[in-house]
């Protein structure tokens, strides 16, 4: 098993947001997490990535059999967790290339692999750029600075392609994308899919799932996964809204 979350509780500023999450993800699987605004989807993503502001009060998380919660955020990344941020952060003065070269080499070092020299690195990112149809110009620009909303999202997928994670968590990467960009992002995810990695897609829209077919769909509601199913669950949600979940699970507003 790649990721195992057991009864995970987490709070921020004394307020409990995650109230007992259980989730297992195997290599080769794609999981979609849906749920109304404020239900805790991004919180779950950030807790898995190691954001310190969120305090884990109970539960366990294992990644490749290791206790994930004791690892620093950079070590989680080096172990193979990648988070495509819902709101990618601007870093003025640091070029995309420079950031990625540092990142890739840190990860390679951690894995006991030889660091890339400048030539090898450029060759590698060229092929990845094609994959997500990223323009050359974005490479030399500062990370996310002045990028359009869609460019930021595409840049996240580009970084994912470069870093080749074991587990990619895409937090609403489809939001705000035009139809072409959506196709490009979905293509990227599909091409990177392999039997030894997995993806968690956080999304509000079933349309993404037309492009990326999930093995499982989970509904997160008020800090709990209240329903899980196959890809047809997404369609059902789209049709009936979240009300039917509330009835179904017996959780009331």
């Amino acid at each position: 098993m790649l990721l195992e979350i057991k009864d995970l509780h987490a709070s921020i500023e004394g307020k409990e947001i995650l109230k007992g999450i259980n989730l297992s993800v195997n290599e080769g699987e794609i999981h979609a997490i849906m749920g109304p605004n404020g239900s805790g989807k991004s919180t779950l993503a950030q807790v898995l990535a190691g954001r310190e502001e969120y305090i884990v009060t109970k539960g366990e998380v294992f990644f490749k059999g290791k206790n994930l919660l004791t690892l620093a955020p950079e070590d989680r990344a080096r172990e193979g967790i990648f988070l495509a941020f819902q709101y990618p952060v601007e870093i003025p003065g640091v070029s995309n290339t420079n950031m990625l070269k540092t990142a890739v080499n840190e990860i390679r070092k951690y894995r006991g692999e030889e660091e890339y020299d400048a030539m090898e690195f450029l060759q590698m990112i060229k092929s990845k750029m094609k994959l997500v149809e990223l323009e050359q110009a974005l490479l030399s620009r500062a990370v996310n600075e002045g990028y359009s909303g869609g460019e930021k999202k595409r840049n996240e997928i580009f970084q994912m392609a470069v870093l080749e994670p074991k587990l990619a968590i895409l937090d609403e990467t489809d939001s705000g994308l035009d139809i072409d960009a959506l196709r490009i992002v979905a293509n990227g995810v599909n091409m990177l899919k392999s039997p030894d990695n997995a993806t968690i897609l956080v999304t509000h829209y079933q349309r993404l799932l037309n492009y990326i077919v999930p093995d499982f769909v989970h509904v997160l509601y008020k800090g709990r996964i209240v329903k899980s199913g196959g890809k047809e669950l997404a369609l059902e949600l789209e049709e009936k809204g979240y009300d039917f979940i509330k009835d179904d699970s017996g959780v009331l507003v």
């Binding site: 990535a49 190691g50 954001r51 310190e52 620093a72 955020p73 950079e74 989680r76 990344a77 080096r78 990648f82 988070l83 941020f85 990618p88 952060v89 870093i91 003025p92 003065g93 640091v94 070029s95 420079n98 950031m99 990625l100 540092t102 990142a103 890739v104 840190e106 990860i107 951690y110 500062a142 970084q159 870093l163």
Partner: peptide
């Protein structure tokens, strides 16, 4: 945190930003 999430430790993240 964004840079940490890309595998870069805090010290190096600050250096990257400051050098830029």
């Amino acid at each position: 945190f964004y840079l940490n999430q890309r595998g870069i430790k805090t010290e190096d993240a600050i250096n990257l930003i400051v050098n830029g």
